[in-house]
Computed example of a mutant assay.
Amino acid sequence: MSDDPLGLLYSEHNRWLTGWLYRRLGCNSQAADLAQDTFLRILTSQRKTGERLTLDRPRAYLATVGQRLVCDHFRRQSLERAYLDMLATVPEAFALSAQEQCQMRETLFQLDALLDRLKPIVRTVFLLAQLDGLTYVQIARQLGIGERTVKRHMASAFEACILSDVAL
């Protein structure tokens, strides 16, 4: 057995993973980037937990991590497209500089990642309150939960926002 299980995983499966990602993305460079990101995510996770990498089904594991990155990629693309569409409607007098646009895009990606880390019900409650402007009573009725539960979910969402490094 190798002293570097991640290195062995990389050498044995990177080519397969890149091909697997290419079939989902249709772009060699994006597939290669996401393959590298997959191994980086595994390395980061391994360092956080301190556990050695042992896999019975390495391709299934790589496909799972890779699929999550593909979803993130498409969500980020959709978010960027919506942002650019919105920018196109802004009158020239109020247009953002290229640097401001870049900062805004990065903040949107960070916010998207923050929302993605919330439990689905917490995210739904938060978005109904913040984007749709619903009251806690309206959210409780719409979701069939108690108003106290809505308050608890909002507190959880606000805590996540406060503890994040997203500059809102």
Rank of each mutant, 00 (worst) to 15 (best):
P91L: 04
P91F: 06
P91T: 04
A93C: 12
A93I: 12
F94V: 08
F94I: 07
A98H: 05
A98Q: 04
A98F: 03
A98R: 08
Q99W: 10
Q99N: 13
Q99E: 15
E100A: 12
Q101S: 07
Q101P: 03
Q101T: 04
M104H: 14
M104C: 14
R105M: 06
R105H: 05
R105K: 10
E106I: 06
E106A: 08
L108M: 10
L108A: 03
F109N: 08
F109K: 08
Q110S: 11
Q110I: 00
Q110D: 11
D112F: 02
L114P: 08
L115Q: 13
L115K: 13
D116T: 05
D116Y: 07
R117V: 01
R117N: 00
L118P: 04
L118G: 00
K119D: 09
K119S: 05
P120N: 01
P120W: 05
I121G: 03
I121W: 10
I121V: 11
V122C: 04
V122Q: 01
V122G: 03
V122L: 06
V122H: 05
V122F: 06
R123G: 02
T124Q: 12
T124I: 04
V125Q: 06
V125S: 05
V125N: 06
V125Y: 07
F126H: 11
L128V: 00
Q130H: 14
L131R: 15
D132S: 09
L134K: 07
L134I: 02
T135S: 15
T135Y: 12
T135R: 15
T135V: 11
T135W: 12
Y136C: 14
Y136M: 15
Y136V: 13
Q138T: 09
I139A: 01
I139L: 07
A140W: 03
A140S: 05
Q142S: 08
Q142L: 09
Q142M: 08
Q142N: 09
L143N: 01
G144Y: 03
